[in-house]
Amino acid sequence: MTPGGARNHTWPPAVGFLYPGHSAEDDYPRLEALLGCAARLPVVHTDIGEDAHRVDALLEMGSAERLAAGVAGLKRRGARAVVWACTSGSFVFGWDGAHAQVRALAEASRLPASSTSFAFVHAVRALRVARVAVAATYPEDVAAHFTSFLEAAGAEVVAMRGSGVVTAAEVATWGREDVLALARAGDHPDAEAVLIPDTALHTAAWLPELEAAVGKPVLTANQVTVWEGLRLLGRSVTGPALGALSA
């Protein structure tokens, strides 16, 4: 007990997420519950601008000014690290540009920082796989930017599937069967893992089912984003919560 009679609680550390707009942000409290007491996962919403999976709109959505505007909210909630929870709004900047984006976020927050695109790269390396398939919700031209980003990181993309969905709002309506179908359609016999980008897509409830459906590791955007945040905190989780990534 403290001198004033209040009980002294030790809260788990927090990693903060800057999330564009409102789509599948409920994956984060779901994943926080699955993680138990490993970490708190506060989310601050950034201004999405135009909801469009189009390169010019994505570059604006991921601008340094939009991200910096959300930093104070995360720090008030005790974040010790910050992740830009958006795949397309990071990889469209290219390998060097995405690094510059994260550096600017780290400078604005004075915290360790990363993004979902780098989360995918680090997760692929953690799984020690070389050949991957991309099953994307995006139009194919946007998905091709993700492929180029992965290849710049040293991964071999053996297959890429774009679904042609233009808005995050539409992606957010996809349910279990849609997500399972996307994983199956995007898989390839030569792929050692299937990557499903887009943090607007709900996946947290179906991670074991996704891996069972294709018989190999599946990495999804919100899954790897949370894993990346834990990595920045120097924490890891074992068990089924994050699929093969936490095995």
Rank of each mutant, 00 (worst) to 15 (best):
N8P: 03
H9W: 15
T10K: 08
T10A: 06
W11T: 12
P13V: 07
F17M: 02
P20G: 14
S23Y: 14
D26C: 03
P29K: 05
L34D: 01
C37L: 15
A38V: 15
R40S: 08
L41F: 05
V43P: 02
T46A: 03
T46Y: 10
D51P: 00
L59D: 03
M61V: 11
G62K: 10
S63C: 03
L67Q: 15
L67F: 13
A68N: 07
A72K: 07
A72R: 07
L74K: 00
K75G: 03
R77C: 12
R77T: 01
G78H: 05
G78Q: 06
V82W: 10
V83P: 03
A85Y: 10
T87A: 11
F91L: 01
W95G: 05
G97T: 11
Q101R: 09
V102N: 15
A106P: 09
S109H: 09
P112C: 01
S114P: 07
S115Q: 00
S115E: 00
S117N: 11
A119Q: 10
A119H: 09
F120G: 14
F120I: 15
V121L: 13
V121T: 12
R125H: 14
R128I: 01
A130R: 15
V134M: 02
A136H: 01
A136W: 04
A136Q: 00
A136P: 06
P139K: 12
P139M: 04
V142P: 00
A143G: 10
H145P: 09
T147H: 12
F149W: 07
F149D: 12
A152D: 12
A155I: 04
A155V: 12
E156A: 14
V158C: 13
R161F: 07
S163C: 13
G164L: 11
V165R: 15
A168K: 09
A169Y: 05
E170K: 11
A172V: 05
L180F: 01
A181P: 06
L182Y: 11
R184A: 12
H188K: 12
D190N: 12
A191F: 00
A191W: 00
A191T: 00
V194H: 00
V194G: 00
L195K: 06
I196G: 01
T199V: 04
L201Q: 02
A204K: 04
A205I: 09
W206Q: 10
W206H: 10
L207W: 04
A212Q: 14
G215R: 04
K216C: 00
P217K: 06
P217Y: 09
P217H: 01
P217R: 04
V218L: 08
A221S: 13
Q223P: 07
W227A: 08
G229A: 01
S236L: 13
L242M: 04
G243M: 08
L245A: 01
S246F: 10
